[in-house]
């Protein structure tokens, strides 16, 4: 695993932890249905981690989450 992947994973983990600890933020972000607006809102939150977690990274992580849902019943 290269350094960039590690940075990406840890940046995403930090972002997730921040969201999971903030119920008001959860409610606010949950209301956004448009993916572009959602990514834009996240970009503003990321701050110093932006170097390792850009818009394209976020979109790919979302696609990964979407695929996991679709494949939930596969063995």
């Amino acid at each position: 695993m290269n350094v960039d992947v590690n940075c990406f994973d840890s940046s995403l983990a930090r972002l997730r932890q921040r969201i999971h600890n903030d119920s008001a933020l959860q409610a606010r972000l949950f209301e956004i249905n448009d993916i572009d607006q959602f990514v834009s809102a996240l970009s503003k939150l990321i701050g110093d981690d932006a170097e390792y977690l850009n818009d394209e990274d976020l979109r790919q992580a979302m696609q990964h989450g979407c695929r996991n849902w679709v494949e939930r019943n596969l063995p």
Binding site: R16, L29, I32, D34, I35, V39
Partner: peptide, 12 residues
């Protein structure tokens, strides 16, 4: 719910 952007990225 699963299709919401939030739940694509921030499921627990």
């Amino acid at each position: 719910l699963a299709a919401k952007p939030f739940n694509q990225l921030f499921r627990r």
